[in-house]
Design a protein around this nucleic acid. Structure first.
Length: 437
DNA sequence: TCTGGGGTCCTAGGACCC
DNA sequence: TCTGGGGTCCTAGGACCC
């Protein structure tokens, strides 16, 4: 723990939903819910207008619909989120070269790594950052915490959320933290909270009573020791600029359980191609292939096997994953399957045999599935579209061979709605993103 | 029409080696 | 015909985060 408040944590408010409201003027001020649209979907982000009705992240979309039927339910446009995120991270990097992104909407910044940081001026620095972020992203707001450690900066950014800032004065960390629930400490989730509750620990102050050895007995070596220190706001973890990926994976929950082995194998092959493509795009290869299976009753198993040498070859990955499926009883059906690769190396072994076939595979990387049951919907709510006569808009809804589009963009007032045939040749996918024209 | 998708880290047991 | 300890790798599962 350093003596100055020079670690900043920034968290964009209701990020996915805010980007949607920015780009869809008719949704501004209205409840917006971004996440899985299907029968088994869950909420990724709810706008604050939806949170008023009790809608939360990770809630089933069906429950969110019941709580907030008048909300707009959107499938998500990750290209747009990535672009907004890139602009935010770029701005943070102007403040200090030492920034640690945690996800698209969150990052730590080590202000102390900047040469001329003046702790007395933090509030001004943060005000400038937030003004610039709103400027470059078209109005997105962020919540910011500044403190002498990562732990307290992250906790501080929650305090005045949304669109707020909180600076923890050095020396007051333990006092700020003490009265909070133990679950305020990142890493204390439902399971840990329940274990703590059973021994009468609810708040961080409670968490300071047991000895370190008692916490280790209760929670294990790593959690016990780290929680003993974090409860006292004792945290000297550095801001770390970039971390290398440890694994790459793809998974899919089916609308209905699948027990047909051939269909599952087809899906596995498609997933192996997708993982292979991502490995190649990043110049990586991996040794361990993991097949994840979630059964009809939600019981989840993984099976893995490890190659002597790393590969990025789609056929090898697919064969390994298919072999892992072979030993499993799937007669009651699977609700989810996933293919992952770990043991990553940032080099690719020369493959003496597969070069020719690889060329062909590269071409078919990430093609849509042939299987109608798993093919992505052509028109999903929220998706950007373009019509030759009406211009740019977004899909409001679709079904029964029709698609309804609202023609408006980030830079227009709320626009009109028109319905087309789903196969209307004048209608096509638009550019997800923030570039004008 | 219960319960996403993409990750990270930790634990624990067994194999194998020294 | 043993007895032990340490280290590393692999596999499986679980907690947690956004």
């Amino acid at each position: 723990m350093r003596s100055t408040a020079s670690i900043l944590h920034l968290d964009l408010d209701a990020f996915f939903a805010s980007v949607e409201q920015r780009d869809k003027p008719s949704l501004r001020g209205r409840p917006v819910i971004v996440g899985g649209i299907g029968p088994r979907g869950v909420v990724a982000t709810a706008s604050y207008e939806a949170r008023v009705h009790g809608v939360r992240s990770a809630m089933r979309t069906a429950e969110a619909r019941a709580r907030c039927p008048h909300a707009a339910f959107l499938g998500g446009r990750f290209d747009a989120y990535r672009e907004a995120s890139r602009l935010v991270m770029e701005r943070l990097r102007q403040e200090s070269e030492l920034i640690e992104p945690l996800s698209l909407d969150e990052a730590f910044v080590d202000l102390g790594a900047g040469a001329d940081f003046d702790p007395a001026r933090v509030e001004d620095v943060v005000a400038a950052i937030r003004a610039d972020i709103a400027d470059v992203t078209g109005g997105l707001t962020a919540s910011v915490g500044v403190a002498s450690s990562k732990l307290m900066a992250k906790i501080a950014s929650e305090i005045n959320k949304p669109d707020g800032i909180y600076v923890v004065r050095p020396g007051t960390e333990a006092d700020v933290l003490g009265p909070m629930q133990a679950t305020a400490i990142p890493g204390v989730g439902p399971a840990t909270a329940e274990r703590l509750r059973r021994v009468g620990i609810a708040t961080v102050d409670d968490l300071r009573r047991p000895s370190e050895d008692e916490l280790v007995r209760l929670l294990g070596q790593a959690s016990g020791r780290s929680l003993f220190r974090l409860a006292r706001a004792d945290d000297d973890r550095p801001v770390v600029a970039s971390r290398e990926a440890k694994s790459i994976s793809v998974e899919d929950t089916f609308e209905q359980d699948i027990s047909d082995r051939l269909r599952l194998e087809t899906i596995i092959e498609r997933m192996a191609r997708s993982v292979s493509a991502r490995l190649r795009r990043n110049g990586l290869s991996g040794r361990t292939v993991t097949l994840k299976m979630r059964h009809h009753d939600f019981e989840t198993h993984t099976r893995s096997s490890t190659l002597p040498h790393p590969t990025d070859n789609a056929r090898i990955l697919a064969t390994m994953a298919r072999n892992l499926l072979a030993g499993e009883d799937i007669s009651n059906g699977l609700r989810l399957i996933g293919v992952g690769v770990s043991g990553l190396a940032d080099w690719v072994q020369d493959d003496l045999f597969a070069d020719v076939e690889d060329e062909a595979e590269t071409v078919e990387d990430e093609q849509p599935a042939e299987d109608p049951a798993t093919r992505p919907t052509r028109w999903y709510p929220g998706m950007d579209v373009h019509h030759t006569a009406h211009g740019n808009g977004w899909v409001w809804g679709s079904g029964l061979g029709r698609v309804t589009v609202r023609f408006e963009t980030r830079w227009t007032p709320p626009g009109p709605v028109h319905t087309f045939r789903a196969d209307d040749p004048d209608l096509g996918a638009g550019h997800s993103g923030t570039l004008q024209a």
